[in-house]
């Protein structure tokens, strides 16, 4: 029941987000100067030619009419056709990029969990020692490091100096992409990993202080099992929510990191679409991103319901 209700609420959210994003991007793009036709034809094309292309792209129609048209299409699940890649479906243009970004984000989340959860747990177990202090200092430094800086540093040292990874690029198919994905994913991990580590550390410390951990210890439950079965699950709960909340930040981080590593994800699509004022593509990307984030939040909702028995009852 709760699952149905949650899903329904998120579905409603998707509709609202879709409406706002469509109207919003339409208005926004028209507020900033810059002519898509000029961007396609270059600065040397004559005004008549530019005018002709504007007409062909439907840009000479009133804004309201254009918005109404793109909303109408959206209802039918049609994102429209690109200005730059003339006649090509927006969906077919951004689909592959979405897959790439999703793949990168998934690897980054996995890496962040692999590093952050044991790391945070370990910091909690060695609390108030030098190791804990250094570890916490490390996470603070990493969190303060902007994604693109992390990306550049990794690119320079890991790739160029040590030659441990390609200096960017993308294979285009799995598992060949693994060669390329891990470094950009690591760059994103420099943000999400420490965040998870800190959350897990705090949550684990809270859990360790809980009477049930003490009680388990008193009952003679082995330390390993206490850490694995009592402290860890309770420390993981806030991580689900944390990752859900950070989906947006992760995507924007991915856009930047993708640029540094020339990963052909939504980021490079978006950059290109913005520089050429490819309105339908920009709109498509904004929409797809927003919807993905809502879907991702739904996923974390469901995950929370699945792992925390208390939510199931209190709702």
């Amino acid at each position: 029941m709760l699952v149905v209700r949650t899903t329904f609420a998120r579905a409603l959210q998707i509709v609202i987000v879709g409406l706002f994003v469509t109207v919003g991007t339409n208005l926004l793009v028209r507020l900033v100067p810059g002519d898509p036709a000029r961007a396609i034809l270059g600065e040397k094309a004559s005004p008549e030619v530019v005018r002709a292309l504007r007409h062909e792209l439907g840009l000479d129609q009133p804004v309201i009419q254009q918005i109404a048209r793109s909303l109408g299409r959206l209802v039918q699940g049609d994102l429209g056709t690109s200005f730059g890649y003339r006649g090509q479906e927006v969906a077919s243009l951004i689909g592959p990029g979405l897959g790439v970004t999703a793949g990168l984000a998934a690897v980054a989340i996995a890496l962040s969990l692999v590093v952050g959860v044991p790391g945070g747990l370990w910091l909690a177990l060695v609390r108030r020692t030098e190791a804990d202090l250094i570890g916490r200092l490390g996470t603070t430094v990493l969190l303060a490091l902007p994604s693109f800086m992390a990306a550049l540093i990794l690119l320079y040292f890991v790739s160029l100096k040590l030659g441990l990874a390609p200096a960017g690029g993308w294979a285009g198919s799995w598992p060949e992409n693994a060669r390329y994905v891990w470094l950009p994913a690591l760059a994103l991990t420099t943000y999400l990993g420490p965040l998870i580590a800190r959350t897990v550390r705090q949550a684990a410390l809270d859990a360790i202080g809980q009477p049930f951990v003490e009680a388990a210890r008193a009952r003679g439950v082995p330390r390993r099992r206490i850490v694995a079965c009592h402290v860890l699950p309770n420390a993981l709960l806030p991580v689900i929510t944390l990752v859900g909340f950070n989906a947006g930040i992760l995507v924007s981080g991915a856009v930047i990191v993708e640029t540094v590593f020339a990963v052909p994800g939504l980021g490079s699509r978006l950059l290109q679409a913005m520089s050429t004022r490819d309105l339908p593509v920009m709109q498509g990307i904004a929409l797809v991103t927003a919807v993905s984030i809502v879907l991702f939040n739904l996923l974390t909702d469901l995950l929370n319901i699945a792992v925390d028995p208390r939510i199931r009852r209190t709702h």
């Binding site: 809980q210 049930f212 951990v213 003490e214 009680a215 079965c229 699950p233 709960l237 925390d308």
Partner: peptide
Amino acid sequence: YGRVVSLVPQNSLMALNPLM
């Protein structure tokens, strides 16, 4: 401990792991 001496801790209403 546990075998010879065993303790029902104070505040035992919170002494069970909510996720278990």
